[in-house]
Write a protein that binds this DNA or RNA. Structure first.
Lengths: 206, 206
DNA sequence: AAGTGTGAACCCCTTCACAGCA
DNA sequence: TGCTGTGAAGGGGTTCACACTT
């Protein structure tokens, strides 16, 4: 199992490799990739090593081959679909984001309590009422959920998600969620990020 | 200077302390706070120690006092205002988010190129055209920017922001930004987060 | 008996540094 | 000469463990 930071960097490398491929570059050196990813050459080589790929001193890494190698490690078709819970500003932003970019990821459905939203499509994503949650998740074998709902109802919904077979949650709700073992939760905390930026930008000033 | 993870956790602790205060609890033990923050008691005690605060074996930490202590470390009035660049889905979500919650943070203004958006208010935040960027930032002494614009124009805007005096950027754009030394950038990468959740939720399955 | 404060140990990720290779 | 692959060193955050306190 790869370290978390490595998985994050691999994701970034891949995006850069995609752009490089688009611009016709066929190979990259570790120090080039490092510069573009705000990392360093040794780190890039180590990360590549960890996924069992290798390059050559003459050419560095082949863009296409490295992309494939990263994909082999990160991608799993069974985990490429997800549901978005909550179509407030944030939920809509996420749907819009992954609706626009036609990426590797698909949002199969969105859920909300607002009758005005239910039954409609947002960026091509159908919206259902909360009562359809379990049905759709199990029918489409969804394993990833993106949570963008108000605090008070979050834990209850999480319980239902986990019971329905969700194994990974991207959590935009600023509260500690209780999940059964085996479910991976990643918190995206914009307020905390803001505070961090404020703290360190102040310090940098000296 | 505190470690990054500590700053993030302090931010979370504080939010929990606010809720505790609201529910009338006047003191907490490290293990209680730890459980609520998905951390552990030793970590909480270490974090508290790092900000020079202390509790007592009998009562643990006083809720109000700890909140104040965290505030003393994290808060800086000069950094409580920010601008949002780009009012697409994500930018609107951020504005809506910090418009709704009347938090410690204020969004002084938003900027966009869309004439339909300029001159209006979103959640009480006035929107300007890009040409007003420098003027408003220096007039209000803004130091934090939240970047939610399309990739192709990101670097150019970042250059202008830094020149105008911005020292911290919350970056929702999935590209490596080049900034002068002294400017702190935190990348919020939803696609990478998704990939991380997918990777580790798969692994957890065993 | 139970919790805090904290030196020290631990662990894991990062970085160094250099042999090997084109 | 310049880059990769990687053992080894390094560094920094986390956890342990226990003296101290109430």
């Amino acid at each position: 199992m790869l370290p978390e930071p490595t998985v994050e960097r691999l994701s970034r490398y891949r995006r850069i490799l995609r752009d490089l491929h688009g611009s016709g570059k066929t190979s990259v050196f570790s120090h080039e990739l490092a510069e573009m990813a705000h990392s360093n050459a040794a780190q890039v080589r180590r990360d590549v090593m960890l996924i069992g790929h290798s390059g050559s001193p003459a050419k560095g890494y082949e863009v296409t081959a490295l992309r494939t190698a990263i994909g082999d490690v990160l991608d799993d078709p069974a985990l490429s679909r997800s549901v978005v819970i909550g179509l407030g500003n944030l939920g809509q932003a996420v749907v819009g984001y992954f609706g626009d970019h036609h990426s590797r990821f698909t949002i199969s459905a969105a859920f909300d309590v607002d009758p005005l939203k239910i039954g409609r499509e947002n960026f091509g994503v159908p919206t259902f009422g909360m009562e359809k949650l379990e049905e759709l998740i199990s029918a489409q074998n969804i394993r990833i959920a993106i949570l963008a709902i108000p605090k008070p109802v979050a834990q209850e919904i999480v319980n239902r998600l986990c019971a329905a077979g969700i194994t990974g949650i991207v959590n935009f709700v600023q509260i500690p969620l209780r999940v059964p073992p085996g479910v991976f939760v990643e918190l995206v905390d914009i307020a905390a990020t803001w505070e961090k930026v404020a703290y360190f930008s102040r310090r940098r000033q000296g």
